[in-house]
């Protein structure tokens, strides 16, 4: 698992670099592999519990495997009144999974999130952090088919 060490070590000398190293891991893998947290604990010379505690505190980080495309549905109040529930239902039925799950082919993971700061275009989803706004259920399948 030299890869993990290589990524994490880049941040070893950066003050407070642990979180930046997690961002780098997640950028590479789309999630934070469990073993990478152990590597981070070694590199930053901190207890494993602390390395794990930091990773699990932040909802943007996900420990353990996710799909290639991470779809996050905003459920904050402005998106909620704009029909987030309908979009979520459509996503769930198109993908055949529930929020929090990954499709069998590891292509899509569906998650819920709070406001992603695109509230001029509610309801909003992000796919690998890219926002898609002004959604209505009929728009979903076209957006999903863009994900190759």
């Amino acid at each position: 698992m030299a890869d993990y060490r290589e990524i994490v070590s880049k941040y070893k000398n950066l003050p407070g670099g642990l979180i930046e190293s997690y961002h780098a891991l997640q950028k590479e893998y789309n999630y934070i592999p469990e073993e990478a947290i152990e590597v981070a604990a070694q590199v930053f010379d901190i207890p494993k519990a602390k390395a794990y505690g930091v990773a699990s505190f932040y909802s943007y980080f996900k420990i353990g495997k996710r799909g290639k495309y991470i779809i996050r549905m905003c459920e904050s109040a402005p998106c909620h009144v704009a029909g987030a529930d309908q979009i979520l239902k459509t996503l769930e039925s198109c993908l055949g999974i529930k929020a929090g799950e990954t499709t069998a082919d590891s292509k899509f993971t569906l998650e819920l999130t709070e406001c992603v700061g695109q509230c001029q275009a509610t309801p909003v989803i992000t796919i690998n952090s890219k926002p898609y706004g002004d959604l209505y259920p009929e728009k979903i399948s076209a957006i999903l088919s863009e994900c190759k």
Partner: peptide
């Protein structure tokens, strides 16, 4: 520095903890 999806990190002392690499 990048936050990671914790609303409370907007609070200034929590934000400082986060830059320092903590919860």
């Amino acid at each position: 520095r990048m936050g990671a999806g914790a609303y409370v990190c907007g609070e200034e002392s929590a934000l400082i903890e986060s830059i320092e690499g903590h919860r």
